[in-house]
Design a protein around this nucleic acid. Structure first.
Lengths: 152, 152
DNA sequence: ACCACTATTGAGACAATTTCTCAATAGCGA
DNA sequence: TCGCTATTGAGAAATTGTCTCAATAGTGGT
């Protein structure tokens, strides 16, 4: 499994911070590193239950925050009501294009935009290292739908 | 008052759509057009109460949606839990830099980034006309705070 | 100005999502 | 293996926004 390195990093982080290595934590880690897309807490909870783990909702939320604190998972509100989580795949820094209507998320990489973001952050005294970037728009389907069935 | 034109447009919109011109609607309009920053529904409600209006929470939410439908107000989730509203000041199209920690919002204009956004939208089949754009990062104060008081 | 019609409002119930509480459980060091 | 205490589970609570429905108040026609 390609997440062996991250799994070890997670376990190290737990140990070095005096946290315990529990079955729930490892199951959640495995689940989110199996998903190669943006998932919310409910989906993770449901997937874990489907696989026979008896883990509670509160534990999922708590340990997602822990994974974020480890730097292994990104937690974002991508225009929708729920937080979405994605595991960080080493090196590959990308940004998000989000459909404001259906919530669909597309990742993209644009070095040019990254450079501009840094510049804008710097110009306004924001950290150029912790930025994250979203474009919210309407995907082709939702544009088509809104043209068929006009605004209201 | 500089919002006379928008106020008239609002009233016209109401009339032409068979909606009534109520005291609550005008009070809300005036309140949001007085605020030159991003406000949430609770702030607007509180401000209106402070000024002696007896308006309910539901009415504030309903009529904010109405103002959005008129194209006079923008409603956005800027990384935070609550929706933020801003009145649209004619012509001036801007994007947002948001502090992920304290929620502070700074507006910026960058024609270069706007062009790149359009290109990315087009490349992925998203509408280049309905886009909106956010950079989430940490403002100087929050960076300083997180360095003083390390991550947890 | 008055009436009747019905859109709008207010108050609180409801819904969706996330966080908190606290007794029971289970890692972990000795 | 034992004991300490971090972690968990279940459900309560908090947060934010939407919905319901009876009461109120704009509006167009007299």
């Amino acid at each position: 499994m390609s997440s062996q390195r991250e799994r070890a990093a997670f376990i190290d982080h737990l140990k070095s911070h005096g946290h315990r290595i529990t079955g729930e934590r490892l199951a959640l880690f495995d689940e989110i590193f199996e998903q190669h897309r943006h998932v919310d807490a409910e989906e993770l909870l449901a997937a874990l239950h489907r696989k026979g783990h008896r883990i509670s909702r509160a534990t999922v939320y708590r340990n997602l925050d822990l994974l974020v604190a480890c730097g292994l998972v990104r937690k974002q509100r991508l225009g929708q009501r729920r937080y979405l989580y994605e595991h960080i795949h080493a090196g590959q820094k990308h940004d998000h294009l989000v459909c404001r209507s259906c919530g669909r998320v597309v990742e993209f990489v644009s070095p040019g935009i990254t450079a501009m973001q840094r510049e804008i952050c710097r110009a306004h005294g924001f950290s150029p290292d912790h930025h994250q970037f979203q474009i919210l728009s309407l995907c082709a389907e939702c544009v088509a739908a809104s043209e068929t069935q006009p605004s209201h």
